[in-house]
Design a protein around this nucleic acid. Structure first.
Length: 753
DNA sequence: CCGTTACTCGTTTTT
DNA sequence: CGAGTAACGG
């Protein structure tokens, strides 16, 4: 190990690294080398031991990070310093670490270890189902609002029954009603939502002192990064675990607390020394990232906030340029100007495209920017928004995996029971749910013995077939790894066939996405360092992925929300849409604390920049399809004007570098973005049929006959099925391909050869 | 039962 | 403008 690393640290950094024992709070200003300190600290403990001179075992360290990516990077850096010992450290997000622990301890809290994790969409879907069942108007009581209230309650450790005491209006009353059933349904689905991954460990610890003692002993050294964004449940977890040894280090910056909307409590960091009166507080105030100008802008704005820990972030870095404020007329204009500046300054500063980032307040803003970059041929990578694993086709396939592994997964089951369509409609699903709830049996039992619960039903055959198919998947999975099982399911469940028949650009891209998921699973199964190659384990990992975790390494400009950019740095940063009502967001103007959070968000945005920073606003912006006027954000007005350059000199620089850009385009002509895929629908070719349309008697139809349909034109019957009113014909139409028609309604005319 | 069409309503931010 | 839902016709 390189023993010189201590000399690379400034005095407070060194203190943060070498003070190994007892409670410590490190206030790490933006760009103060926090990650470096954390890595050195862990390496130091492993290499030199604690203050008593004992070596610290890598298995005894628990490090909680904000994203899985941060954990991965830190682990790699530690491994470079101390070797493979680094692999034993428990390092990851709260959610991933405790889902791991809950798998092992599942039986103790009444779950089985194959429990499913419901993401936001799944959880909201369940709330919606419950609202429907309770006949509560979901137009008024929106599922996402109700779910949000439930989630907040769970974060605050208020159970469904305890929630009753907070009922004071119609909203809280309905929330209470739904909350109770929501919890039951999660339980009977053997599922946990994101909040449960933090609450259930507390339940486990409370009811099993021996288990708590075991983990307290194991995690002798606890480290929590981004402590300013922990919520109450996370706070309680750390208190429980640290209670015995009190070797807890929390690292954070109150000025960067930006997640209160999901329950983060800034008081956790502001009150740390009340919880641990003997705590040592170390402030890292020297910034190594940004120019003095950029830092001055950040400080100007943040000092308007009342609630904060006193600190002075400063830098010894070289004087840079002024911060440029870009003012545009429209959002297209804004996008064009950003694109222009990128294509000129990349040559002027000799930067790669991935050195540029464009940050915005809301995901919806990415479109205009993407379009502007695409026009001049600059590749862009949009992080977040609809991420890969949230796409419909991916979620559909994953729902098949989920049902295969956990047959009580209600949400996943509903999603796939009739997709691709197999004749089990809403009405039938409703009946099945009813039967399960009345008989107090699981959904799976009902499905498997459908005749017993819903006798003489028309659709029992279809339901039985579905159940048998899932049963096959389950058996196959027992003897195969994740990739083999996934491939088997894709081809057997009908999804692949369904998508293959769709030849539109979106259909093709869906097939590609399915293929990409299979590749990801293959990559997972081929990973030699993994011991568990089951589909179950793959799913567990996938459900906890975050935006920041997906990082293909092509050279492209990055677009993301400011929230996603937390913890990152870029040579050149554009903050776009710095307008009143957008940033600060309109909905934050009701309270001082919400406005202060917006200001912290602005602080985070500004402090991502190393060399150059642009703040951009437009005088007009599309909102809900209408153009509306906007003005510069109050945050811009809070900056000392001397730090700002109000007019960029974009145009001259562009002319100077236009030739370089043209050469670049020549070399990269193949470049396209996904957003270029057109969404146009297939247009039916006009047919030269002018005769009178006379529908035939369905009984006269035979396989192989040429027929004509009023809308679809000419086709050939490829199959007939069903009897009486339920008779269907499969017809291959020249214009639109295969269709299944219910002959009760569809009129066909026999074409005489 | 299924697909198409007409309307409504919304944007914070995410593990 | 676009996603998502209700209503309807085949």
């Amino acid at each position: 190990m390189n023993t010189d690393f201590l000399t690379t640290l400034n005095p407070p950094q060194k203190e943060a690294v070498t003070t190994t024992d007892g409670p410590i709070m490190v206030i790490a200003g933006a760009g103060s080398g926090k990650t470096h300190v954390l890595t050195c600290r862990i390496a130091y403990m492993l290499e030199y031991g604690n203050e008593a001179g004992e070596k610290v075992d890598s298995f005894d360290i628990l490090a909680l990070t904000f994203t899985n990516k941060a954990a991965k990077e830190m682990r790699e850096r530690i491994e470079k310093m101390v070797g493979t010992e680094a692999r034993n450290i428990w390092m990851g997000t709260f959610h991933s670490i405790f889902s791991r622990i809950l798998r092992v301890q599942a039986e103790k809290i009444g779950y089985s270890r194959d429990f499913t994790i419901y993401d936001q969409e799944d959880a909201q879907g369940l709330v919606k189902t419950i609202l429907k069942e309770l006949k509560i108007d979901e137009k008024v009581f929106k599922p996402n609002y109700i779910h949000n209230r439930i989630s907040m309650a769970k974060n605050m450790l208020v159970s469904a029954s305890e929630y009753e005491q907070y009922v004071r209006d119609e909203w809280s009353e309905k929330t209470h009603q739904v909350y109770k059933i929501y919890e039951q349904r999660l339980k009977s689905a053997n599922a946990m939502d994101f909040d449960d991954l933090l609450i259930k460990p507390l339940e486990l610890f409370k009811n099993n002192p021996d288990v708590l003692a075991q983990y307290q002993e194991r995690f002798r050294y606890i480290l929590v990064d981004e402590y300013q964004d922990t919520n109450h449940a996370q706070y309680m977890i750390t208190r429980y675990l640290a209670h015995k040894h009190e070797n807890i280090t929390v690292v954070g910056d109150d000025a960067q607390s930006i997640y209160s909307f999901r329950g983060a409590n800034i008081q956790n960091i502001l009150n740390f020394n009340k919880d641990y009166p003997q705590a040592k507080i170390i402030k890292l105030e020297q910034n190594y990232r940004s120019t003095p100008n950029i830092l001055a802008v950040a400080n100007d704005v943040i000092q308007k906030n009342k609630d904060q820990i006193q600190k002075t972030v400063w830098t010894a870095n070289q004087e840079g340029e002024k911060v440029t404020v870009i003012r545009s007329l429209t959002e297209q204009d804004e996008a064009n100007r950003v694109a222009d500046i990128i294509r000129s300054s990349r040559y002027e500063l000799n930067l790669a495209l991935k050195d540029f980032v464009i940050l915005y307040r809301t995901n919806a803003q990415s479109r205009a920017i993407e379009e502007g970059l695409r026009k001049v041929g600059i590749p862009a990578r949009v992080i977040g928004g609809m991420s890969f694993y949230q796409r419909k086709e991916i979620k559909d396939l994953i729902a098949y995996f989920r049902v295969t592994l956990n047959d009580n997964d209600e949400v996943a089951l509903k999603r796939i029971i009739n997709y691709p369509t197999r004749g089990i409609g809403d009405a039938t699903v409703e009946k099945i749910m009813q039967a399960a709830s009345v008989s107090k049996n699981t959904l799976w039992q009902v499905l498997n013995n459908i005749e017993q619960y819903i006798p003489n039903s028309r659709i029992s055959g279809a339901v039985q077939d579905f159940a048998t198919m899932i049963q096959h998947f389950r058996e196959y999975n027992e003897t195969h790894d994740a990739y083999e099982t996934a491939k088997y399911i894709v081809h057997q469940c009908g999804l692949f066939k369904e998508l293959k028949s769709d030849t539109s650009p979106e259909g093709v891209s869906r097939i590609e996405n399915i293929q990409e998921l299979l590749n990801a699973i293959k990559f997972f199964t081929d990973d030699a360092t993994r011991s568990d190659k089951s589909l179950s384990f793959f799913l567990q990992e996938v459900s906890l992925l975050t935006n920041a975790d997906l990082s293909p390494d092509e050279d492209a400009v990055t677009l993301m929300t400011i929230h996603t950019a937390k913890g990152l740095e870029f040579p050149v940063v554009f903050v776009v849409g710095v307008e009143e009502d957008l940033f600060p967001s309109k909905s934050s103007l009701n309270s001082r604390s919400e406005l202060e959070e917006e200001r912290r968000l602005f602080y985070v945005a500004v402090t991502r920049a190393k060399k150059r920073l642009f703040l951009s606003y437009s005088e007009q912006r599309y909102r809900f399809g209408n153009i509306s006027d906007s003005t510069a954000s109050r945050f811009i007005k809070e900056i000392n004007p001397e730090l700002l350059n109000l007019e960029g000199k974009a145009s001259q620089i562009i002319r100077k570098h236009e030739k370089n850009h043209q050469e670049y385009l020549q070399k990269n002509l193949h470049y396209t973005t996904k957003s270029m895929l057109s969404t146009q629908k297939a247009v039916l070719p006009k047919e030269d049929f002018n005769g009178e349309f006379i529908p035939c008697n369905p009984a006269d139809l035979q396989v192989g006959m040429q027929v004509r349909h009023e809308k679809f034109g000419k086709g050939k019957i490829t199959g007939l099925e069903g009897i009486g009113g339920n008779q269907k014909a499969h017809v291959f139409f020249n214009a639109v391909g295969n269709k299944t028609l219910l002959l009760k309604y569809a009129k066909l005319m026999i074409v005489q050869e």
